[in-house]
Computed example of a mutant assay.
Amino acid sequence: MLPTAARLTRNQDFRLVVRRGRRAGRPRLVVHVLRPDQVRARMSGEAEPEAQANTAPTRDSSASTRVGFVVSKAVGVAVVRHRVARRLRHLMRDRIPDLPAGTLVVVRALPPAAGASSGELGADIDGALKKLRIRCSDGPGSS
């Protein structure tokens, strides 16, 4: 299970990562990543200068790496979707320490993920993170 601080839960956060972040596609999933410097630049660029002074954030959202998952009905029935989401959560939990602090990640499962093993999903995640050059160090599954 992912700790609460490592979960991406708000719809606006998912939308921000998918629209503004970089993505890498693999056969069974797509990984969207928004780096901490992009998050700060985006947040500072959205509001007007006088509005920024009045709306200071109540918590530092850039302090921890957060991950969210999208597993649509195209992947399969509810049992299959939940199995895929659990596998992805477990795989990403082991990779969070290797990501820069404050990184936002969305992992979107594609229909072939339904029949994939955890090893195949892990290889796809590692390949996507390597393509995006986001890993800080060699973590599980890296060669």
Rank of each mutant, 00 (worst) to 15 (best):
V33I: 10
V33K: 06
V33T: 08
L34V: 11
R35F: 04
P36F: 11
Q38N: 00
Q38P: 00
Q38G: 04
V39N: 01
R40E: 15
A41N: 06
R42Q: 14
S44H: 15
G45H: 05
P49H: 10
E50T: 11
E50D: 13
A51C: 10
A53T: 06
N54Y: 01
T55H: 08
T55V: 04
A56M: 06
P57H: 00
P57Q: 01
P57R: 05
T58Q: 08
T58I: 01
D60T: 02
S61Y: 13
S62R: 15
S62A: 15
S62G: 13
A63N: 05
A63Q: 12
S64Y: 12
R66W: 05
V67H: 02
V67Y: 00
F69D: 03
F69E: 04
V71Y: 11
V71K: 07
V71F: 05
K73F: 01
K73D: 08
V75Q: 08
G76H: 02
G76S: 09
V77A: 14
V77K: 15
V79S: 12
H82Y: 07
H82R: 11
R83W: 07
L88R: 03
L91N: 04
M92T: 07
R93W: 03
D94W: 02
R95S: 05
P97M: 08
P97K: 01
D98E: 10
D98P: 02
L99C: 05
P100L: 03
G102Q: 03
L104P: 10
L104C: 12
L104Y: 09
V105S: 06
V107Q: 01
R108F: 00
L110V: 06
L110Q: 09
P111Q: 05
P112K: 12
A113R: 04
A114Y: 07
A114Q: 09
G115N: 07
G115M: 12
A116P: 09
A116W: 04
S117M: 02
E120N: 08
A123F: 05
A123Y: 07
A123N: 07
A123G: 14
I125A: 07
I125C: 09
D126M: 13
G127R: 00
L129M: 14
K130C: 03
L132P: 05
L132T: 02
R133I: 04
R133V: 02
C136T: 14
S137N: 12
S137W: 07
D138T: 14
D138H: 12
G139P: 09
